[in-house]
């Protein structure tokens, strides 16, 4: 009888089946994420439908250029994430490390610009609550736009921070050489998550910055 340590505990017949199972699991998680953000998008749709003028007025106070630049920053980070995925499958450790570092840096730039925007909103009295009084007192519906702005971009930024944490972990593993071509799942799955969070922003951009 074989000792327990030699038993192959893998439930998969081959690497392809394992890969499909990993992708199904990740896409199931992403479906729950679509619905998680979906609740906020539905809330946005209801209030925008009810108060169209207030939403246009709120959106006009957004920083168009920072919003546009940040969208470009995220799309570029996604390109490097896709390159990282390519590199791990070729077993190119140094390329993988560089790509992960680029994704991390672009993510930090995005959050830096985002928090600069939050600061600006605070200075301009656009943070919902007792201190909300742009131009010495705007109509309450415009405050709803800013509630949703902070809730939606805040939840998105939280996802970015989690992503940056995971990418840091991947970078350490890549540096130690424990990310190999025969086991690309950690990079692949992190990539799916990162691209998904990018897609959420792709929708936030026209809904928050481009309403006219």
């Amino acid at each position: 009888m074989k000792p327990p340590s030699s038993i192959d505990a893998s439930p998969y017949t081959d690497a392809t089946q394992r890969s499909v199972a990993q992708h199904l699991g990740m896409w199931t998680f992403l479906a729950t994420e679509i619905l998680f953000f979906g609740g906020l998008f539905a809330c946005y749709a209801i209030y925008r439908h009810t108060y169209p003028e207030a939403f246009a007025a709120g959106s006009a106070r957004m920083d168009f250029w920072i919003g546009t630049l940040n969208t470009g920053v995220l799309l570029t980070s996604s390109l490097f994430m896709a390159f990282a995925d390519h590199a791990v499958k070729l077993g190119r450790r140094e390329t993988l490390r560089r790509c992960l570092a680029a994704v991390w840096l672009l993510g930090v730039i995005f959050l830096g610009l985002k928090f600069y925007e939050y600061h600006q909103k605070f200075v301009e009295h656009l943070v919902p609550g007792a201190g909300f009084h742009p131009d010495g007192g705007a109509a309450p519906p415009e405050q709803l736009f800013f509630v949703l702005y902070f809730a939606m971009t805040g939840l998105h930024a939280l996802h970015m921070m989690i992503g940056l944490g995971v990418i840091t972990w991947l970078f350490v593993r890549a540096s130690r050489g424990t990310l190999t071509a025969d086991r690309p799942a950690p990079v692949e799955m992190t990539g799916l998550y990162w691209h998904f969070v990018d897609c959420v922003w792709v929708f936030l951009y026209p809904l928050l910055y481009l309403v006219r």
């Binding site: 499909v20 992708h23 199904l24 896409w27 199931t28 992403l30 479906a31 729950t32 994420e33 679509i34 619905l35 979906g38 998008f41 996604s78 390109l79 994430m81 896709a82 990539g191 799916l192 691209h195 998904f196």
Partner: peptide, 23 residues
Amino acid sequence: FFMRLRYQTGLVRLFAVAGFFWL
């Protein structure tokens, strides 16, 4: 392309659009 659905099986693609169906 980035999330590689073009290169995935039909089952994975189905899971990917399921979230949008519920949405």
